[in-house]
């Protein structure tokens, strides 16, 4: 048992992907940074010095404290506090958690929707294909942020009063729906190539149900590029979430995400309390950069022409 596990580990260590990873220093750095982001976000309740979402812990007398290395700073608030007395560092941890949750959930949602529609369009062809792809074209002619804003607005109008508790899912839905087109287009292209290959025709001759062929035979062979898109899309989704929260339509003010924090800090741009906006901004940049670098590396590593 242990031997087989070791073998499996060795196999994956020797695989092309791992080899490429080991020889790409920036991918390794990005992976470490991303792992650190995910780690602090997941472990936020345990590693953060304070719980900024617990309103009873907030105290106005701690508001707008500068970072600890500046005169007037307090070591228990290493990066200072915002106007409500929230610890910036802890809020970044908790805020990154929301950002990542929304980002990953939205990407899973777009991926599921996009891959399914792309497979269908590519495999069935004809009018179905034309319909799905024209819808995709129409959607592509709008910026993703507009679509996200539209869906968010509609959701708020449909569920008035409940939007605080639903804010998370509304965000996931609006960002998710605005991103499915890329997946659908990529998958449709690859599917059209794969469906004429011998193994698919053989499966058809056996009389296997088209849905089964799509899921079991075509899907695994078109997933490579999807993974690349998904990785980069996580970064885009996080940025979109931050933008929506910055515009004030994201998560509730009492549970700020990174975008909300940057917006709050924006009000203090002229008054010298730069830390409220700078640190959440930096955290956002670092997280998104790390994911983008990983995505770039994955794209190159999976591209047979670059090997």
């Amino acid at each position: 048992m242990a031997g087989r596990l070791a073998d499996a580990l060795r196999d994956s260590w020797d695989s092309d992907l791992a080899w490429s990873f080991r020889h790409s220093p920036y991918a390794m750095v990005a992976a470490i940074v991303f792992a650190a982001c995910v780690g602090t976000a997941v472990l936020a309740p345990w590693v953060a010095p304070h719980n900024p979402f617990d309103l009873a812990q907030l105290d106005l007398s701690n508001s707008l404290k500068p970072p600890m290395w500046i005169a007037g700073g307090d070591p228990s608030y290493p990066l200072g506090t915002d106007d409500q007395g929230r610890d910036i560092l802890s809020t970044i941890f908790f805020g990154a958690r929301i950002s990542l949750e929304v980002g990953i959930a939205a990407v899973l949602f777009s991926m599921g929707l996009g891959v399914a529609l792309g497979l269908l369009a590519g495999y069935v062809g004809g009018k179905t294909d034309a319909f799905i792809m024209r819808v995709a074209d129409v959607q592509l002619s709008f910026p993703a942020i507009l679509i996200a804003l539209l869906i968010d607005g509609v959701a708020r109008a449909v569920f008035p009063g409940a939007h605080d508790s639903m804010a998370f899912w509304v965000l996931v839905l609006s960002i998710g729906v605005s991103g499915w087109v890329q997946y659908a287009r990529t998958v449709r292209g690859s599917t059209m190539v794969e469906k004429n290959k011998e193994y698919v025709q053989a499966a058809r001759l056996f009389g296997i149900h088209p849905l089964a062929i799509m899921a079991r035979h075509v899907l695994p062979n078109v997933l490579g590029p999807v993974l690349v898109i998904a990785t980069i899309h996580i970064a885009t989704a996080i940025i979109t979430e931050a933008t929506l929260s910055f515009l004030g339509v994201g998560v509730p003010a009492t549970e700020p995400s990174l975008g909300t924090l940057i917006r709050i800090g924006n009000d203090f741009m002229f008054s010298g309390e730069w830390w409220v906006t700078l640190f959440p901004g930096l955290a956002l940049v670092i997280m998104v950069l790390a994911i983008n670098l990983l995505g770039d590396w994955l794209r190159d590593a999976l591209n047979p022409r670059l090997r």
Binding site: L58, L60, D83, Q84, G85, D164, P252, A253
Partner: peptide, 23 residues
């Protein structure tokens, strides 16, 4: 206004009230 309301929610949290803010 909204900042004061936010501060009130945390002050009331200290006496056990869970106040949701709708600004």
């Amino acid at each position: 206004d909204a900042l004061i309301c936010q501060a009130l929610t945390s002050m009331w949290a200290k006496i056990g009230l869970k106040v949701k803010l709708d600004a």
